[in-house]
Simulated assay, not measured.
Amino acid sequence: MKQNIVALSVAIFAAGAAHAQSNDTLAKIKAVGSITQGVREASGALAYALGNGVYAGFHYEVCTNIISDIKKQMGLSQLEAKYVPVTSANRIPLVKNGTVDIECGSTSNTLARQKEVAFASTLYVEEVRMAVKADSGIKSLADLNGKTVVTTTGTTALQVVRQNKRAKNIDFREISGKDHSDSFLLLETGRADAFVLDSQVLAGSIAMARNPKSFKIVGEPLSVEPIAIMIRKDDAAFKKAVDDSIARQVKDGTIAKLYDKWFMKAIPPSNTSLNLPASAATKAAWEHLNDRPTESYKVE
Rank of each mutant, 00 (worst) to 15 (best):
K233H: 06
R173M: 06
P226I: 07
V6W: 09
K96T: 05
Y297A: 01
R210T: 15
L158M: 00
S106D: 11
I29E: 10
K30L: 07
Q3A: 15
T155G: 03
S296V: 03
T156W: 01
T254H: 09
D101Y: 09
G38L: 07
K261S: 09
V160L: 15
P85G: 07
R91F: 13
E174Y: 05
E126W: 15
E103K: 05
I66N: 07
A7T: 01
R173N: 11
E41F: 06
A209F: 11
K178D: 12
E116Y: 12
T36F: 13
L123V: 10
L202R: 08
I255T: 08
T122H: 13
R232V: 02
S279M: 05
R91Y: 15
E295H: 02
A280S: 11
L79W: 13
I92N: 01
A17G: 08
A42K: 03
K139R: 09
Y124G: 00
V201T: 02
I175G: 12
A11C: 08
K298Q: 11
A280N: 09
C63I: 08
L289H: 04
G253C: 04
A131H: 01
T36M: 13
A20D: 04
G146N: 14
F184E: 02
T110D: 08
D252C: 07
S68E: 09
E220Y: 13
P269E: 06
S140Y: 13
V128H: 03
K82Y: 15
P268A: 14
K133P: 02
E174N: 08
E103D: 12
M264S: 11
R292C: 02
L79I: 02
A89R: 09
